[in-house]
Structure formats: structure tokens, C-alpha cells
Simulated assay, not measured.
Amino acid sequence: MSIDTQITGDQILRVGPVNPAVAAILADEFQTAILPAADERDAWLAENGADIRVAVCSGKIGIDTELMKKLPNLEAIINFGVGYDATDVSQATERNIPLSNTPDVLTDCVADTALGLYLDTLRGLSSAERFVRAGTWASGQNFRLATRASGRKVGILGLGRIGQAIADRLEGFGCEIHYHSRNQKDGVAYQYHGSAAELAEATEVLIVAAAGGPESAGLVNAEVIKAVGPNGFIINIARGSVIDEPALVKALQEGHIAGAGLDVFAKEPQVPAELLELENVVLLPHLGSGTVETRADMTELTINNLRSYLKDRTLVTPIS
């Protein structure tokens, strides 16, 4: 389709809830269409699906297999978020539909969250805060001893932008960094391990920072969790799908690992009830990049991707 063919607002589809600032711009500047709720969706798509040329979505919702099939003239997908595993990337590739995301702008805040989870999980800070609030300390009891956070051997599973930012922070705590990624990184001094299990075996804390999607689903399986060991910890700021959640729950219940810090889960916002009962687990509501500053940067980059595509059919941050 020619670049000279203008894309109008009714040919741009907002899919699912998106960031409020993004939603406001889509409505005010572009007057985009909005995909209706499930009970009205099929009828709407039958009438309007062929008109849609650009879809805007969040990383959580994405453009799944069935929806993409019902958008036969879709040209581009604009994704709010660094993760895009909710989108059928294989179908998009087959149909030559480019996809953008929002990398880099959220790296620091996600890495900060990982560091916070690391400290909280090893030192038991949230648990200690509940101990004080419950009046247990005032009653004369002492809080349990925790685990030293500095100077530990830490394994980073997925040494991408976020993984490297986490490593940078942990170096300030005197930690010895190890890693596993799909490929060994050139110019990286950290010790490389050939598998997730080998990484877990060699370290005391396993921080999961791998990209989501089918390729990493279940990467941290029962074997890897066992390799973490009874004195080891798991921190996950990646995707819930990367960890075999039932195996993790079982390991925590039976004391096969010392604890876990989790910002993501397999079926968000549902969290396994068993985890809610454990004091050696820190649970966060997927807030990794959730700061005012990062959301503003993500909004700007999302809208810039859309404007760029409408102008000359290029994306600022395409998925390669």
C-alpha cells in the first residue's frame, strides 16, 4: 500500500485497556477506533476488521492469533511495553507486519525493582515490617535472622539491557556476577554458564531477566529450581511464564529453596494461594517499570512509533 495513502483514525484500532495517557492521545489526536468488549467483538470485527491497518495494544493484551486473523489488512502493531509475548509474532512475521515496543526507557526502573526485590527477599524487609505492624516486636519477640545481601554469587538469567543494568547495581554490593543467555556476550567479564541449571548450581541467587515468549516458557523448570538449592533464592522480574510456577510453589513449601521475590506470575493478576501463606516470599503486583517517569517515557515512545508509521511507514523502535 502506498505511503501516500493516508491512514485515518477509523483505520487505527486500540486493543484492550492501555495506559491512560496513551488512550487520551489516541482519542484526542487520532480519534482511533476501540475494539469492543467480548460480547460485541465478533460482530464488530466482521463489519470493520478489514478496514483496520494499524493496531495499538499493551504488552499484556497484545494482538493474539485469532484477532490478527480477523484483521486481514493489518500493516503494523504498536506495542506499549518492552514485552510482546501476548502478540502472535510468528503470524505477524509471516504477514510482514512490523511490530514496535518500548525498550530502554524502562530499563532502569525495572532494574531498580529487581534490586529492591533482591534486598527484600534476602533480608526479609517486608516480613519484618509486618512483624512490627502486628505488634509482635512490641510483645518482646525478636525478628528472625535474615541472609546477607552483599558479596553474594548472583546468577542473571538473560543478560540483555535489563539484565546488565541489574548486574551494574549488584556490583555496587560487591556481588560476583554470573550469567546465562542464549549466546555468550562479547566483551563481558562475568562468568558464562551454558545452561540455566548450570547457572543456578554455581550461584546463590538466581535473578530471572529473560525475555518472555514461547522460547523461554518454562525455562526455569524443576531441575533448575532444584539446582538453586535449599540456601538459594529466586528473583523474577521477567515474565511469569519463564518459571514453572507449580514447581516453584512446591520447592518453596518443602524448603528446597530458601525464598523467592516475584513481580510476575503465570496467570496475572491471580497469584497462587499457597504463595500468599509463605513469609519467605515477596510478592509484587507486576510493578517493575511502574513509575511516573517511565510511564511518561513509554507513552512518548509509543505515540512516536505511531506518528512515524503514519508519516513514512517506519517505526522508531521496531522488533528486529
Rank of each mutant, 00 (worst) to 15 (best):
residue 12 I to A: 08
residue 13 L to K: 06
residue 20 P to W: 12
residue 23 A to S: 11
residue 33 A to K: 11
residue 34 I to Q: 13
residue 37 A to T: 15
residue 42 D to S: 14
residue 59 G to F: 04
residue 63 I to Y: 08
residue 74 L to H: 06
residue 80 F to G: 00
residue 81 G to M: 07
residue 83 G to V: 09
residue 86 A to V: 10
residue 87 T to R: 06
residue 97 I to A: 07
residue 97 I to H: 07
residue 102 T to M: 03
residue 105 V to W: 09
residue 107 T to D: 11
residue 113 T to N: 10
residue 119 L to K: 10
residue 121 T to A: 14
residue 132 V to F: 10
residue 140 G to S: 06
residue 145 L to N: 06
residue 146 A to L: 01
residue 148 R to P: 01
residue 149 A to Q: 05
residue 149 A to E: 07
residue 155 G to L: 06
residue 155 G to M: 03
residue 156 I to V: 15
residue 159 L to V: 00
residue 169 R to K: 15
residue 170 L to S: 00
residue 173 F to T: 04
residue 176 E to F: 01
residue 177 I to D: 02
residue 187 G to T: 01
residue 189 A to V: 11
residue 191 Q to T: 15
residue 193 H to Q: 09
residue 200 A to W: 02
residue 201 E to Q: 14
residue 203 T to F: 06
residue 206 L to N: 05
residue 212 G to L: 11
residue 221 N to F: 03
residue 222 A to G: 02
residue 224 V to H: 04
residue 226 K to R: 15
residue 232 G to E: 10
residue 248 L to P: 02
residue 249 V to D: 07
residue 255 G to Q: 08
residue 260 A to G: 04
residue 267 K to S: 15
residue 267 K to D: 15
residue 268 E to Q: 13
residue 270 Q to P: 02
residue 271 V to N: 02
residue 271 V to D: 07
residue 272 P to W: 09
residue 275 L to I: 10
residue 278 L to G: 02
residue 279 E to T: 14
residue 286 H to G: 10
residue 286 H to W: 09
residue 286 H to F: 13
residue 289 S to V: 08
residue 298 M to Q: 13
residue 303 I to A: 12
residue 307 R to C: 12
residue 308 S to E: 11
residue 311 K to D: 14
residue 318 P to H: 12
residue 318 P to Y: 12
